[in-house]
Amino acid sequence: MAVVEVRITLKKGVADPEGKNTLKALELLGFEGVREVRSVKVFEIETDGETEETERSVEEMCRKLLANPVIHNYTIRIK
């Protein structure tokens, strides 16, 4: 069994209203020195397989469902 962590981030130049709003709220709460907040989505996927095959199949999961290539980058890490 392997646990795979998929991290979905927004591409450079894509607006991140969730991050921006969180930043604003943090400022309102009095936190100083916060430069930027970026929202990121993480999926933890438990699979039967191991290694190369797993990575290929998770890559396919990202392409077919987890990420939208128009706005997302993704990284895959086998834990």
Binding site: V14, A15, P17, E18, K20, N21, R63, N68, P69, V70, I71
Partner: peptide, 27 residues
């Protein structure tokens, strides 16, 4: 859009989406 049936600028249904309806600017 997620299915690839829109905007479908080339063909009827694209394999991956060509656009996305993302979070409103106001969040």
């Amino acid at each position: 859009v997620e299915t690839g049936l829109l905007p479908a600028m080339s063909g009827i249904m694209t394999e991956v989406p060509e656009a996305v309806l993302s979070t409103n600017d106001s969040a």
